[in-house]
Every structure is written in structure tokens, then in C-alpha cells.
Design a protein around this nucleic acid. Structure first.
Length: 846
RNA sequence: GCCCUCGUGGUGAAAUUGGUAGACACAAAGGACUUAAAAUCCUUGCCGCUUGCGGAGUGCCAGUUCGAGUCUGGCCGAGGGCACCA
């Protein structure tokens, strides 16, 4: 009996080399096979892989391998999201070239990923910072420009003072930059925009068709797009020769009769009339001093600046005052609202402060004409009153529609659907990004860079200065001569989210030179069947990619795909305990040791560390574990096994030393079981003692298949543990060589997606000379002749009786009355009712 | 404030359509093997009484049902998203 331990270093390396040499995972169009496009979100090349990558790519790899064994033609590519600020920051700090920095990182991370044994088609590798990639991005930019989906305008933008760049709305979180974490400022700049809002409706409605997406992501996108149904109302203005009307958007036109003021944003065009008014200037300043934090908004008082204008209520011609108010936002709706204090809490607060009329027009009960709103606005359902011809209408079901009908008929307003989604500002004042292929003539008019001059490559810059836009200072690059005419290049680069909005298309034909993708290849491979990544991209990246697919297929009959990702899976984060020393400094797990169950500092084992809460791994808390080190000590299969074992993939998982050690031990156990089985195979009995082995094999093929299909990878690992236990016992029974090999082979095929190195090695040792395919189970072996019937008395389990599965009720009752331990419950009692569930249980009510 | 998700042993978690709650694993304790250690294997969810058995038990309170972790209503708690959104 061979008894040497499993040497993962030799064996894993051996198989990784074989896969690389044989191009085992190279994907080619094969129209006779069903395709499966498995994609994990590609990494930013920060330098090293982290545990989040390990989890993400292991989940994807298990799926890709499983689908491949099931006969699918699998596309499983990998690339690098390699433009972005860390490269630029590193360059500024250490006087490096961002390109070199990025390429070194990529080389390092590629070799680390290869150590995980991923089934990736490395021939399709792409990197977004390469001109061969971004050339096509520039083509797309110009294509979208021609389609009218790109435009330039001066606008207030979110300015990140630390990163010295503009941020999209989506990139501002709680009023702070998504990367820098500092409060965002308002700044007016000329910016390029993608007209994402043109597709608001499509982006919203298509969500319903994405039935393989997590509901929570769809809800988040739905909220973000923020569709609301209402109408635009025209209000005539008195006492002004400069304006005749102001338009408001409202979702509650049915409360018009309760209107007592009109409120405008301080940025509303009407504010021009007051730009020299000292009171207004002071008021505007006051408004902007209100912070953007949650508390500030929640506790901010409703304040207003009264104008000398009067607005006329189109329903009854009553005149109401016009205010500027701090709670009206210019970038939602039309920057103007009519105030109905009785039925809107904000308006109510405002009316109280400025002593405005509060007239209720909705009553909860039909006949309660005395209804008043004294303490707060009433926003619930009811019936319209105090409203002339609208009186008695059911609110909101009838009242809103009827009011809009009236307004439209009398040309006072019109039905309108409003979206919260804003256009995507894509200009960034950075160096390390894709140059925008635009040049400005001597009159500063933007022109497209001619197609034959693409790509517009980034210039080499010797020394990046600490702040400001480097391209703006690269004079030689900026000034360009075309056909004797002088132009200046656009010096902003594209938001890096543009890079990742179409990379899934590029993977279909990564080497195509004349266009970003090949139509036939895209037709075959797209959409991505399963996309896997973190929940943090629920809005930004996923919405932008969906937009890009809309934009590419817009006015293009050849591209029918509207949604890039058919299935989406969002995996949870990898967490670890946190540690601090006596001075409250974070301590990394590497700097600690365990003595008698307590944790101490390595450098002085008399100093205990404080164990803090379990949090997602992050550099700032120093609770990261380096995957490269772990793979080196335990092997890729052990890492894969553990990262999947402890929690469902969509939930957070806690990394622990004990867990990875247990996974390592289990691999060793599988190996020694293998040695035992190889010995048994050589015994070659003439006849099988029983068919338990077939039963076990088929039962677990079924279980593991079902669990893999449903992403229950943690349960698959449990199944494998259980299978090991049963096999370890069953192997002492005598089987023929054929039976043993046939079943053991299938079990190893089942382990292949999770433990590719170990299972390949074992399969090779079996000398089968056959391809690994996903085994099918045979129902014949799943039929159990006997079953443990559950015997309940008054709904309580009292016994299990092992008996014939097809026993009838009478015979089962006979067994029950013969059963000594059940006698005491039944004897001398009248049976009132029996519930018999064949093949499962019987419940006796007495 | 609005929307979504989730509450099961010391811990991570299992549990087809309502049908044996706690599979599988980690930790801890006890035991076996060993001169000893490592490694390996076995036992143990809680409360009772002596083995065996009995009782309670899936955040809390009701309800539906022969039967509820699972379905319904209300409450409490945690996490996440959105937010002067008109």
C-alpha cells in the first residue's frame, strides 16, 4: 500500500502546466454545442490578489468547470481593469511610469491567479489601458457621438477636491467621493455626457425580464432610476413683465385646490431676476451652507425667500405667493413645485413657518367635510373635497387621472413621467485613462478626431506633478496640426467605468483590429450567461454596462442583444477578526500568535492583543490574509475547498486558520482513502457483496448536481464530506474491480469542479483513458425498499419504524400496536383520526 | 421617513412542495490509541431524573393546520439601499 502524503506542490504544478500546454480552456465557436459564457468581474491590478478575488474566481471556476463537464462550450476569460487612479498616485509618489507600474502588477497577479488552477482561456486576456483596447473605446465614443448619445455642456458638477476630478452622481456617496471619502464640492465645468437618461424606460422595464438576477439588485436599480408618474402644470405669473409662466412637475395634481404657494429652487432660471437682490444673495448663501449629510438634511429647517411674484392657480384663478425655497432641487423635475400644505409634510412645515393657508382637499372618510390637518399633513388615501368639480373622487385612484384629463383638455398642463436618473458625466481630469477622441478648432468648437488617427494615445510624461490635469500641461501632445489647421486636443480622459462597460464584448473577439468586437462572435457568445461579482457594483458598473449595450444596439439592426448579463450572482465578502494592540493600533493576524487559546503579539508573547469584531478584510484594518502565502502552505485545492465551505456564496464568509487547516486535512484524508481504494481495486473480487456502493454513488451524484445547479456550494462541500465518510466504511465490503472503478470514477468526476488538481491526479492513476464528463445518476439505485416511517402521536414524533416503503396503512397500524414503546400511548385510547402520508409518516390523533 | 433582506446550538450553517429541527464543519470538554507528544478515531445542543426516558426548543406574541423553522397578521432586533424626489 502506497502511503506517502499528498504533495500538492508537485501535483498542482503538474496539472497547471498540463492545462497551459494543452490550452485546455481555449474557447472556439462550435455551433453544434450549447455555449456558456461565464464571467467574473475583472480585477483592478493593484499588485496582489486578495481573498475577495479568490472567492469570486473560485465560484466562477466551479461553475465554468461544471458546465464544461456537462457538455457546454464554455467561454471563461480574464482581463484587467487597468486604468485608474492608484497607478497615477503611485506614479506621482514614487516617480514611476504608470504603465510600468501597471504591467508589473498584472504580471504578478496573473501568476497568482494561475496558482489557483482556474479554467481560464488566457489567450483572450485583455487590459483596458492598452491602446489596442482603448482604440475601440474611442471608436465607440465617436459612434455614440454620431448617434446623438454623447454631448457636451456646462454644468454644475460634483468636484472631488482630493482627487481633483469630477464625479458622476452615482459616485457620490453620502455627499462624499466614492474613492476619496471627502465631501464633494459644486463646480461649474464644461463636461462630456453620455445620454443614459434616454434609455431610462428601457433600463427600468428590462429589469423585469432579468429573472436570474438577485431581486435586491433589481430593486436598487429601480430606485436609482426612480420613475414617477405625474404631470407638468403651467402657472401664469402676475406682476412681472419678464416672465409669464412657471412650470411645475407634480405627482399629485389632484391636490391643486389646496395650493397656497409656489416654491422654486434658488438655481431656477427665475432667480436671474433677483441676482442683484441683496436679500436673495444672502438667502442663497444660507441655502448652500446647509450640509449634505443625512443629519443636516433631516434637521434642516424649511426656509424661503418671498418674491414679489404671484402665481395663478389654474383651477380657480386664486393668486398665491411665489417663494424661493431651500427644499426645492433644480436637478429634479423642473426645479419648481406648488405647495399643498395639507397633504405634503414639507409644504406643511413651510406653511406653518410663513403663516400660509392650510386648506385640506382630501378627507379619509367620504362624508367628513369638517376634516382638518392640524398637527401634520395627511398623505393617506381618501376622497377629494373642497375642490369644486373634483369633489367625491376616490383618491388617489380616480382623482389624479381625472385632474390630468381636465388639465390637458384645457391646455393647462400635460401628463408627464419623470425620472430621477441623470445623464452620465464621463469627463475626468486625470492622466491614466482613455483619452477622449475630440479636438477643438481655433474657435474652440469640438470636432471628432478622424478615424484614421485613432487611437489617440496617451503621451509619455516624465514627471507627474502632485495636482492638476497632466494632459493639460502636455503642450506638445495637446497641440495638433491636421491638414495645416491647428487644433487643441481634449485633455480630459474618460471615467474608468466606461472601460468596464463593454469589456465583456471584447472578450468575444479580443484580437479583432478594425472594430471593438466581431458580430458573429458576439452573436454566438453573448449574453453573458452567468456574471459573478460583488454587490458593491449593483448600481454603478451594472447600470453603465446595461446602458452601453442599449447604446451599441441603438440604430443598429445587427445587434439584437439588449441586456449584457442574463444571470447575475453577487457573492459575499471575506471577513476576518480584527486585532489591536495596547495603543489601539491595528495588528495584522501575521503579527500574532496563539498561546493557550489566547492571542499574543509575535514580538513579545506576554502582550495579549485585543480581539475586535469580525469585519470584511481591508488594508486599513490590517485584517487581510495573503492568498499567495496560503496557497503556498496549503495548496490551491484546500483554499478552494475552504473558501466555499463555510457559508453560502452570496453571504459573507469568515476566514479562519482552523478552517483552512481542516480543509487541508480533508484533502489528505481523501488522498489516503484513494490509496486504500487502489489497493482494494487490485484485490478484484469475483462478485459484488451488495449494491450499497452504487446506491451511495448515485444518491450523491444527484445531490451534488442539484446543489451545484443552485449555487449551494457550501452544501456541496458538506455532501463531499458525507460521501467521504460513507465511502470510507463501504470500502471494507467486497466489490468487483469493475464496480469499484466505475463508481469511484464517477465520484472523482463529481469532485473535479471543486478540487481539479486532486481529482485529475486520482483519475489519471485509475488509467481510464476516457474523458471526464459529468456523471448521470441512475434512478434504479435511488429506490429504497425500506424506510424509517415517522410515527407521530398527536403531532409529536414518538418513534421511527424501519419497514417496507410501500406498506399500507393497516399493516403499519399493526406494527405500531405491536411496538412496545408505542403501546403506552395508544392502549385503551380511542383513535379519533389518522393522517397517513405514504412513504413518509403517520400521525395518530387520540 | 420610504423600500429590500435576514433572525435556527458556543460558532459558521443544513432542512424538496408545510411532514424526523440542528446534516456538514469549526471550537470546547471528555474518552481511546501512545512511554509521551503530534497525528488519528469515538462521544457530547439545552433542562430534568440513574442507564433510558421525559420536557422545552428555530427573535417575541397570536392565527391557519392532524402537523409550522417553512404559510398569515402584529411586534422586537440586525444588515443593506434610497431620501427635502415634488
Amino acid at each position: 500500500m502506497s502511503s506517502e502524503r499528498y504533495n500538492f506542490k508537485i501535483i498542482e504544478n503538474k496539472w497547471q502546466k498540463i492545462w497551459e500546454k494543452d490550452k485546455s480552456f481555449s474557447a472556439k465557436i462550435d455551433k453544434n454545442k450549447k455555449k456558456f459564457y461565464c464571467l467574473e468581474m475583472f480585477p483592478y491590478p493593484s499588485g496582489k490578489i486578495h481573498m475577495g478575488h479568490v472567492r469570486n474566481y473560485t465560484i466562477g471556476d466551479v461553475l465554468a468547470r461544471y458546465k464544461s463537464l456537462n457538455g457546454y462550450n464554455v467561454l471563461h476569460p480574464m482581463g484587467w481593469d487597468s486604468f485608474g487612479m492608484p497607478a497615477e498616485n503611485a506614479a506621482r509618489q514614487n516617480n514611476l511610469d504608470p504603465k510600468t507600474w501597471t504591467e508589473t502588477n498584472i504580471a504578478n497577479m496573473r501568476s497568482q491567479l494561475k496558482m489557483l488552477g482556474l479554467s481560464i482561456d488566457w489567450d483572450r486576456e485583455i487590459s483596458t489601458c492598452k491602446p489596442e483596447y482603448y482604440k475601440h473605446q474611442q471608436e465607440f465614443f465617436l459612434e455614440l457621438f454620431d448617434k446623438g448619445l454623447v454631448y457636451r455642456k456646462e454644468q454644475y458638477v460634483n468636484w472631488d477636491p482630493v482627487d481633483q476630478t469630477v464625479l458622476a452622481n452615482e459616485q457620490v456617496i453620502d455627499g462624499k467621493g466614492w474613492r476619496s471619502g471627502v465631501p464633494v464640492e459644486r463646480k461649474k465645468l464644461n463636461q462630456w455626457f453620455f445620454n443614459i437618461s434616454k434609455f431610462s424606460n428601457e433600463l427600468l422595464e428590462n429589469l423585469d425580464s432579468l429573472d436570474e438576477w438577485p431581486n435586491k439588485v433589481k430593486v436598487m436599480q429601480k430606485n436609482w432610476i426612480g420613475k414617477s408618474f405625474g404631470c407638468e402644470i403651467k402657472f401664469s405669473i402676475e406682476q412681472s413683465d419678464k416672465i409669464d409662466e412657471i412650470k411645475c412637475f407634480t405627482t399629485r395634481p389632484d391636490t391643486l385646490f389646496g395650493m397656497s404657494f409656489l416654491a422654486l429652487s434658488v438655481d431656477h432660471p427665475v432667480s436671474k431676476l433677483y441676482q442683484n437682490d441683496e436679500g436673495f444673495i444672502k438667502f442663497k448663501k444660507e441655502c448652500s451652507s446647509t450640509g449634505t449629510t443625512e443629519e443636516a438634511i433631516a434637521s434642516a429647517q424649511k426656509i424661503g425667500f418671498k418674491t414679489n411674484l404671484l402665481a395663478i392657480n389654474p383651477m380657480n384663478n386664486e393668486k398665491v405667493p411665489v417663494y424661493f425655497a431651500n427644499f426645492v432641487l433644480m436637478d429634479y423635475g423642473l426645479g419648481a413645485v406648488f405647495g399643498c400644505p395639507a397633504h405634503d409634510q414639507r409644504d406643511f412645515d413651510f406653511a406653518k413657518k410663513y403663516n400660509l393657508n392650510i386648506k385640506p382637499v382630501v378627507t379619509p372618510e367620504l362624508n367628513n367635510k369638517e376634516f382638518q390637518t392640524v398637527e401634520a399633513a395627511y398623505t393617506g388615501p381618501g376622497y377629494i373635497f373642497n375642490s369644486s368639480f373634483l369633489d367625491g373622487l376616490k383618491c388617489p385612484e380616480e382623482s389624479i387621472i381625472k385632474t390630468i384629463e381636465y388639465l390637458e383638455k384645457n391646455n393647462l398642463g400635460q401628463k408627464k413621467i419623470n425620472f430621477r436618473l441623470k445623464d452620465w458625466g464621463i469627463s475626468r481630469q486625470r492622466y491614466w485613462g482613455c483619452p477622449i477622441p475630440i479636438i477643438y478648432d481655433e474657435n474652440n468648437n469640438p470636432q471628432k478626431v478622424p478615424k484614421n488617427m485613432l487611437p489617440v494615445e496617451l503621451p509619455k510624461i516624465e514627471q507627474l506633478e502632485p495636482t492638476g490635469n497632466p494632459l493639460d500641461k502636455a503642450i506638445n501632445w495637446k497641440n495638433v496640426n491636421i491638414n495645416g489647421k491647428k487644433f487643441k486636443r481634449e485633455t480630459d480622459t474618460l471615467d474608468t467605468f466606461v472601460d468596464s462597460s463593454w469589456y465583456f464584448l471584447r472578450f468575444c473577439s479580443p484580437n479583432k483590429e478594425d472594430y471593438g468586437f466581431d458580430e458573429d462572435e458576439v452573436k454566438y457568445w453573448m449574453p453573458v450567461d452567468q456574471y459573478i461579482g460583488g454587490i458593491e457594483h449593483a448600481i454603478l458598473h451594472l447600470l453603465y454596462s446595461r446602458f452601453f449595450m442599449q447604446a451599441i444596439s441603438y440604430k443598429n439592426e445587427k445587434i439584437k442583444i439588449k441586456e449584457p448579463f442574463k444571470g447575475l450572482f453577487t457573492q459575499g465578502m471575506v471577513c476576518h477578526e480584527t486585532y489591536k494592540d495596547n495603543n489601539n493600533n491595528w495588528v495584522s493576524p501575521d503579527e500574532t500568535m496563539i498561546l493557550n487559546g489566547k492571542r499574543y503579539l509575535n514580538k513579545d508573547n506576554s502582550i495579549p492583543v485585543k480581539v475586535g469584531p469580525i469585519e470584511s478584510m481591508s488594508k486599513s484594518k490590517r485584517n487581510t490574509i495573503d492568498p499567495a502565502k496560503i496557497i503556498d502552505s496549503f495548496g490551491a485545492d484546500a483554499v478552494r475547498l475552504f473558501i466555499l465551505s463555510d457559508s453560502p456564496p452570496e453571504k459573507d464568509v469568515q476566514w479562519s486558520d482552523e478552517g483552512i487547516e481542516a480543509a487541508y486535512k480533508f484533502i489528505q484524508k481523501l488522498w489516503s482513502l484513494n490509496n486504500k481504494i487502489l489497493d482494494k481495486i487490485n484485490e478484484d473480487n469475483p462478485k459484488n457483496e451488495n449494491n450499497n456502493l452504487e446506491k451511495i454513488t448515485n444518491k450523491f451524484i444527484k445531490k451534488i448536481s442539484n446543489n451545484l445547479e443552485n449555487f449551494n456550494y457550501n452544501i456541496v462541500i458538506a455532501n463531499i464530506h458525507e460521501l467521504y465518510g460513507l465511502l470510507n466504511k463501504e470500502i471494507n465490503i467486497k466489490y468487483t474491480k469493475k464496480t469499484l472503478i466505475e463508481n469511484y470514477k464517477k465520484i472523482m468526476f463529481c469532485l473535479n469542479p471543486i478540487l481539479p488538481h486532486l481529482s485529475n491526479e486520482i483519475i489519471e492513476n485509475l488509467n481510464l483513458k476516457e474523458e471526464i464528463i459529468w456523471p448521470k445518476y441512475n434512478d434504479k439505485f435511488l429506490i429504497e425498499e425500506t424506510i424509517a416511517y415517522v410515527i407521530q402521536i398527536n403531532g409529536k414524533k414518538r418513534a421511527l419504524i424501519e419497514t417496507d416503503k410501500n406498506i399500507d396503512e393497516d399493516n403499519l397500524l399493526r406494527l405500531i400496536s405491536d411496538n412496545a414503546s408505542l403501546k403506552k400511548y395508544i392502549d385503551n385510547k380511542e383513535i379519533k383520526r389518522k393522517i397517513f402520508v405514504p412513504g413518509k409518516l403517520i400521525n395518530i390523533i387520540i
